[in-house]
Design a binder for these strands. Structure first.
Lengths: 351, 351
DNA sequence: GTGCAATCTGGAATCGATTCCACGAAGCGA
DNA sequence: TCGCTTCGTGGAATCGATTCCAGATTGCAC
C-alpha cells in the first residue's frame, strides 16, 4: 500500500510538505496541494491511522462496551452514541462482552491499548470501570444504562426504581393486591433498582409482601417462561405479573398462552422498556418507557465534553450519576383483577 | 502512561529483552521474565496497540459495517461474528452506516486506514465493497446478509427468493389468490430477491398478477402501516399480505388493528425472518426463518480463512456466493381466506 | 538597495513497540 | 586448552505519519 513517502517521491516534494498538503494544513501553495492530491489519488494513497495515532497520541476513536448486541436496551443507546460521535469526527469501536465480566475487562483493556480517547461502558459486573480509571485517571469513562460500584465514574441511567413503583402503583389502582415480579439476575444495578421500586410500592400500598413473590433469574425468555409457569402453579391467586424486562415479558406471554390463559382477562401483565413489538403483542403491553435515545445522546455529549476538558488541564470534578425519568405507557395488558383463582388448562408446552 | 522504556529502565534491562519477556517469546531467562512482569505490573504498563500494529503491520482487528444497530437481521449475525473472531484472538470494530451509502464508504475507508485485517460488510448500496477491493486487492472482504453488484467479493446471504416462494406457495395452498406484498426499498439485493421469489410463485400458481399488488418502501413500521392502510382501502379484495420483513409485519399489524381487522380470520399475514416476538404477536406469525447465526459464523470463518491464506501468497481464488436456505415456520397468522371483501371499520388512527 | 517579515519547503526528530544482528559468556567435545 | 555452538542480552533500525526548526525565496517598506 502506498505511503506518504511514495507520494513525496512521485511529486518530488518533501515528506513534510506532502503531509501538510494532505492534512489540509495552512502554509502550502495551492498548486502544490493540487499536485499532491492528484498524486495521492493516482497512487491510491490511504493514510495509516496507526502511525498517525502513534505520533499524535490521539486516535479519534471512542470505545463502547455493551453486554448484548441483540437487546434494544443497549443497542438503542449505542446507535445514538455512534451517531453523535460520528458527527464530532470520532469513530466508535463497539465491543460486546456477552455479559461476561472477564470478557468485559479484556475488552476494556484492549480499548485502552488501542488508545481510544474515551470509553462508554455498560458494566457486566459490580467492579465495573474502576480498574480503567485507576490506571488511566485522565481517560474519560462513562457508564451507561447500568451502574457498577465505581465511585469515580460518571453514569447515565434510567430511573428504574421510579418505573417499577409507577407500574405497581398503577396495578394497585386497578385493584390488584397479589402481584408477582419476575426480576433479573441479582447483583446488577438494574435488577436492584427495579426490585427496590417494587418493594417500596408494595410497602406503600400496604400489600402483604408474602403475597407478592419475586423470582430472580437471567433476562432470558426461556427462563422467564419456566419461572412464570412455576409461579402460577405454586400461587394461582396471583392476579398480576410484573415482568421487568422485554425478554421476560416474552417468556411470560408464552407461559400464559401455554396455560390457555388470556391477558388481561385472566391475568394482568406489565412490562418494562418499550420495544416496538409491545404494540402488537398478544395484548399490547402496558409498560414504563425509558428515554434510551436521550440517555445515549447525553452519554456521548458527556464524553465529548470530557475529552475537550482534557485538552486543558482542569480542576477536579466529582463523578455524577444522571438519572433519566421515563413515562408510564398504558395499553391493554392490565385491567382490574379477575375474582377467584386461576383455572390452569395445562397444555402441552410448545417446544 | 508507562511505556516499554519505563519498564526497561526500572529493571535495568534492554528494550529488546523487555519486549521479548512480555510478549512471551522464547530466549529469555525465566527469572528475568519474572522480574520484567513484576515491574510491568507495578508500573501499570499497558502496551500501545498503535505502535505494535505499526511495526508489525497487523492490527489483530477486523471491521464490520452494518446498516442498522437495531435490526436483528444484522445484529444477530454480528453477535456471532464477534464471538468467532474473539475466540481467534481478533477484535471486532463494529460500525453502523445508517443505510447511507456515503457513510458506508466513509466507514470502510476508516477501517482500511486503521489497517484492519479483514472486513465484513452489509453493503448499503449497489457499489458495495468493490472500491475497497480494487485499492487493496489482498484485503479479505466478505459481504453478509445483502449483496452488492461487486463481482470480486465473497458473499454470504440467505436464500430470500426461495423464502418468498415457499411463503406464497403456502398461502396458495390455503386457497389464497389475491396476495399483496409489502416489499422493501428498490435496489437492495434483499428486496430484489424477495420480490423475484414472490413474482415467480405468483406466476407458477397461475395467479393474476394484477390482483397481487406490490408496494415498495423502506423497511420501516410507520411506512408499512400507511402502505397497508392504503392497500386495503384501494383493494378490499385482498385476502393475504406478505410483509417481507419484521419491521413491515409490525406496521401491517398496526394498520390492521386500526381497521378493526382480525388476523387471520379477516385477513392472513405472513412475515419474513423470525424475531422472538413473532411467537407472542397479536397472531403468532407464520414466516420463513433464515439461519442468521450460521450465516454469521460462516462469514467469520471465511474471513479467518482468507487472513490465514494471505500469510502465504496464494493462488487466484474466485469470489463465491454462499446462499443459506431457511425454513418455513407455520404458526397462526395465516389460514384459509375469508369469502367476500373486507369490511373496514375505520378507527381513529393511533398516533 | 537593504532590512525585515511573511511564506513556502525540507531535514530530521519523534511517537512506542518489534526485530535483526552482533556481542559476550557459558557449555561441551576433541 | 582451544574452538565451536548455544543462550541471553542490548543496540539500533524500522514501521509511517506529524511537527519542530531552519533555510530559501519572495514581497514590501524605508
Amino acid at each position: 500500500m502506498a505511503t506518504l513517502k511514495d507520494v513525496a517521491e512521485a511529486t518530488n516534494l518533501g515528506l513534510a510538505t506532502v503531509s501538510r498538503a494532505l492534512s489540509g494544513n495552512a502554509g502550502v501553495l495551492p498548486e502544490t496541494r493540487k499536485k499532491v492530491e492528484a498524486a495521492a489519488k493516482a497512487l491510491g494513497y490511504q493514510p495509516n491511522a496507526l502511525a498517525r495515532g502513534l505520533r499524535q497520541s490521539s486516535s479519534k476513536a471512542v470505545g463502547l462496551v455493551i453486554p448484548d448486541l441483540e437487546n434494544e436496551f443497549y443497542t438503542s443507546g449505542a446507535a445514538v452514541i455512534q451517531e453523535v460521535l460520528a458527527n464530532a469526527g470520532y469513530r466508535l469501536i463497539l465491543c460486546c462482552s456477552n455479559n461476561d465480566p472477564t470478557i468485559d475487562a479484556l475488552l476494556l483493556d484492549s480499548l485502552v491499548e488501542r488508545r481510544v480517547e474515551a470509553i462508554a461502558h455498560v458494566p457486566s459486573s459490580a467492579i465495573g470501570s474502576d480498574v480503567i480509571r485507576s490506571r488511566n485517571p485522565s481517560l474519560p469513562v462513562v457508564e451507561y444504562a447500568r451502574r457498577s460500584n465505581s465511585e469515580h465514574v460518571d453514569s447515565i441511567v434510567g430511573d428504574e426504581a421510579l418505573g417499577s413503583e409507577k407500574l405497581i402503583e398503577y396495578l394497585v389502582s386497578l385493584g390488584h393486591r397479589r402481584i408477582a415480579m419476575i426480576a433479573g439476575p441479582r447483583g446488577q444495578s438494574t435488577t436492584t433498582a427495579r426490585l427496590a421500586g417494587f418493594e417500596s410500592a408494595v410497602r406503600k400500598a400496604g400489600l402483604d409482601a408474602d403475597q407478592c413473590p419475586v423470582l430472580h433469574g437471567p433476562y432470558d425468555p426461556d427462563w422467564s417462561e419456566d419461572a412464570t409457569r412455576e409461579l402460577l402453579l405454586q400461587d394461582p391467586q396471583i392476579t398480576a405479573i410484573f415482568a421487568s424486562s422485554s425478554r421476560t415479558v416474552l417468556g411470560a406471554f408464552k407461559a400464559l398462552s401455554g396455560f390457555g390463559l388470556h391477558v388481561p382477562s385472566d391475568i394482568s401483565l406489565v412490562g418494562f422498556l418499550n420495544p416496538p413489538w409491545y404494540e402488537v403483542a398478544l395484548a399490547p403491553v402496558t409498560t414504563y418507557e425509558l428515554p434510551l435515545k436521550d440517555m445515549g445522546a447525553m452519554a456521548a455529549d458527556l464524553l465529548l465534553k470530557r475529552i475537550a476538558e482534557n485538552e486543558h488541564p482542569h480542576a477536579e470534578w466529582a463523578a455524577k450519576t444522571i438519572r433519566f425519568e421515563g413515562r408510564l405507557i398504558v395499553r391493554e395488558s392490565a385491567t382490574a383483577p379477575r375474582v377467584g383463582s386461576l383455572e390452569l388448562a395445562e397444555m402441552p408446552r410448545a417446544s
